[in-house]
């Protein structure tokens, strides 16, 4: 693929994830959209690591995946705690901080 195609693919996936993170009401689906954003960035790192022959980009992807795993563990723990015993999985129901 030409370079611009990879960058545009990654940007499209990132934007799709951003849309999902904002438009989704189900907290789990919102989380999965964010996971897609992590992966869109990973693609660019892998591509440019290959382009410049430097393994550093792949190391960065390794770190990103580690942080993503930690984020998912904490995030899902929070979601379970917030929505346990609730009727619907709806982010709009979390409004107890509303004044």
């Amino acid at each position: 693929m030409p370079e611009i195609a990879v960058i545009v693919l990654s940007a499209l996936l990132f934007a799709l994830g951003g849309y999902g993170a904002m438009a989704r009401k189900n907290p789990l689906q919102m989380f999965m959209a964010i996971e897609m954003m992590w992966n869109a960035v990973n693609l660019v790192f892998i591509y440019f690591a290959h382009r410049f022959g430097d393994v550093g980009g792949q190391i960065f992807v390794f770190v990103v995946i580690t942080v993503a795993a930690a984020e998912v563990a904490i995030g899902l723990g929070t979601v379970v705690l917030a929505f346990r015993g609730r009727e619907h999985l709806d982010l709009d129901e979390l409004d107890s901080l509303k004044g």
């Binding site: 438009a23 989704r24 009401k25 189900n26 789990l28 689906q29 989380f31 999965m32 996971e35 993503a68 795993a69 998912v72 563990a73 899902l76 979601v79 379970v80 929505f83 346990r84 009727e87 619907h88 999985l89 709806d90």
Partner: peptide, 21 residues
């Protein structure tokens, strides 16, 4: 990570109707 998601879906979403977006 996705197995973790599946576990949480089984814990929270099973049997509930999904909210429309």
């Amino acid at each position: 990570i996705l197995i973790l998601f599946l576990f949480v879906i089984a814990l929270l979403a099973a049997g509930k109707e999904e909210v429309a977006n």
